[in-house]
């Protein structure tokens, strides 16, 4: 349900005029809730940033999620993360 809550909170924050981007662990939920921008990552629940104590991987995920803010498509924008497999 976390992924639903994130989408709902995100919509409410964006409605105040703030640009938002998020990570989702459950694309099917995010497609229904339709937050403005979300990056779908291939990890299990509890691991949205991939791996503990792996700053390099965490930075790569954050960078990809932040890049959605520069995407000029009309929201909802839902992208599948590129090269972010846990080694």
């Amino acid at each position: 349900m976390c992924n639903q809550s994130v989408g709902l909170i995100q919509r409410a924050v964006e409605a105040t005029g703030i640009s938002t981007t998020s990570i989702t662990l459950d694309e099917s939920i995010t497609k229904r809730v339709k937050p403005p921008r979300a990056l779908s990552v291939p990890y299990r629940f509890g691991y949205p940033l991939g791996e503990p104590n792996n700053p390099e991987l965490q930075h790569a995920i954050i960078a990809e999620a932040l890049s959605l803010l520069e995407n000029e498509e009309t929201p909802p924008i839902l992208k599948v993360a590129g090269t972010l497999r846990v080694p």
């Binding site: 976390c2 992924n3 809550s5 994130v6 709902l8 909170i9 995100q10 919509r11 409410a12 924050v13 964006e14 409605a15 105040t16 005029g17 703030i18 640009s19 938002t20 981007t21 998020s22 990570i23 989702t24 662990l25 459950d26 937050p35 629940f45 509890g46 949205p48 940033l49 954050i62 999620a65 932040l66 803010l69």
Partner: peptide
């Protein structure tokens, strides 16, 4: 509660919010 947090962040002049589930 979600709109309330949005308003608090707007009052803080926040430009970008990054959200994570668990």
């Amino acid at each position: 509660t979600a709109p309330e947090v949005g308003q608090l962040l707007q009052a803080d002049d926040v430009d970008v919010v990054f959200l994570t589930p668990v």
